[in-house]
Design a protein around this nucleic acid. Sequence first.
DNA 1: CCCGTTTTTTAGTATTACTTCAATAGTGCA
DNA 2: TGCACTATTGAAGTAATACTAAAAAACGGG
Lengths: 234, 234
Amino acid sequence: MTPKTLAETGESDDGLSPMGIRLRNRRKDLKLTLQDVADASGFSVGFISQIERGITVPSLTSLISVCRVLKMDAGSFFTPPKNDQPITRKQSRQAFGLTGLADNKLTYERLSASFPGNILRSTLIHEPPGFRSEPMSHEGEEIYFILEGELTIELDGARTILNPGDTAHFPSTVVHATWNHTTEPTLIFHTCTMDVFGDGEPSGDPNTSLVITRAADRRKAPKPSKSKKGTDNE
Amino acid sequence: MTPKTLAETGESDDGLSPMGIRLRNRRKDLKLTLQDVADASGFSVGFISQIERGITVPSLTSLISVCRVLKMDAGSFFTPPKNDQPITRKQSRQAFGLTGLADNKLTYERLSASFPGNILRSTLIHEPPGFRSEPMSHEGEEIYFILEGELTIELDGARTILNPGDTAHFPSTVVHATWNHTTEPTLIFHTCTMDVFGDGEPSGDPNTSLVITRAADRRKAPKPSKSKKGTDNE
DNA sequence: CCCGTTTTTTAGTATTACTTCAATAGTGCA
DNA sequence: TGCACTATTGAAGTAATACTAAAAAACGGG
C-alpha cells in the first residue's frame, strides 16, 4: 500500500511538509509557542513539534484540534485530488453543458485566480436564448447569481425561474441543469468549488496568487477554444 | 485528551458519521462496490466498510486515497472549527469591518445557504460612501465582484480601484481592506470560504440545503443586529 | 557568558488503523 | 421458495504509528 502522503506530495527541499510549514507559520503569526499550542490542544510539545517538522502525520481528530487552536481551516490542507483520468475531464466539461453546444454560442469568462490551495472558481456565463445545459451532478457546491436576463434552473427535477439579483446556492451533488427560456441572453455570475478550468495543481507562481479582472479587458472568446484543447489532450 | 471527533461532532441518530455517510452515498452514486473502492485505493473491503459505518477514522493519507478513488474533495469533510472563544468572534466581526462602523450604515444581505459540509458564503455588500473597512487577514479565500459603484481595495498595502464588472480574487491570508472612496454607495457581490455568519455546524435540515434568494424578497436589515447579539454573548 | 525559554531528540508504549477470514445479508434467477 | 453468488458486516487480531515524557540541544536576551 503506497498512497501518496501529505508529506510526500508536497515535500519541500528541506524535507518539511507544506502542512507542517503552514502550521508553524501560523503559530508564529499568532505569537504562540509550541507549549501554548500543546496546552490548548491537549497534546504534548514534542508531538506538535513533530507535526510541524513533518515527522508525524496527525490523525484527523488531532488535526482538527490543532487547527481549532490555530484558527485554521483543516480542510485547506487538502488540495482537490489531481485527476489524471480523461473520462473525468470530459465529465468536467459536461458539467458546463458543452455537450449541449450546437449552433448556440455559450460563452464563459473566467474570473477567478489560481493559487496554491485555492478552491473557488468563478465565471461569467453568457447563456444564449434557448440554451439548455445537460443535467449534471458532481462534488462541491455552487452559487448562481443572475446579473441580467432570466434563467430557469432545474434542481432534482424541480424548476425555478430566477430573475436579476436572484441567487441559487446548492450542493453540486444535486442533479442540476439550466435553461435560458427567454429570447435574450442571460448573464450569470457563477461560483463553485470544483476544478472546472483544469488548473490541477497550481504552480505556486506568485503572479497568479491575486487576480484583479477588469470588465473592459475581459476576453470574449468562446469557451470552445478550451474544449478543443481538451480534445487534443485526450 | 478529549477533542471532538469527526464522528462525535456529526453523529446522526443511528450512530453513523456524516463523513461515512457521504462516502457511502458517493460510492453508490458511482455504482461501485466496497470491493471496487478497496481495490482501487489499496485497502481492504472491511476497512472501507468500517470507515463508511463510522467505526474507524482513517488516517489523513488513507482519507486522501479513498477520496481520490471517489473523486471527492477530502477537505470538504472539515467544517471550519466551531470556535467558542468570544475574542475570536469579535475578530470575525472585524473581518467584515464592523469595528469601523460609526454613523455609516454598512449593510449586508446574505445570499448563501447553509447545509452540511458547505463552505461558500455569499453576501451582497452595500458599502456606503467613504466607508473604510479595517485591514484584516484570516484563513480562506474570497472573491469580490463589483456590481455598482467603485471600490478601492487594498491588498498587502497595494491599492487598486475596481469598477463595475471587475473582480478581485485572493487568499484571505493576504492583509486586505476596502474603501468606498466615492460619494455613492458601492454594491458588491462577495463570496468567501469562511464562516462569517456564525452558522457553525449546520443542522442538516433539508430545508436549508438549497436556497434560492429573490432580489425582491431580500431583507434590508443592517448587519449590526448581528453585532449586538455577539455582544450579548460576551 | 549565563540563564531561562523553546524546541528537538530519544526511547519508548498505548492506541488504533487496518488486516484476514468467517458469518450474515442481499439479490437475482429458476 | 430455494439456491447460488455477490456484497457487506462482524470478530479477532497485530503491525504500525500516533503520541508521550524526559533529557538534551538550541535559542535569545541581558
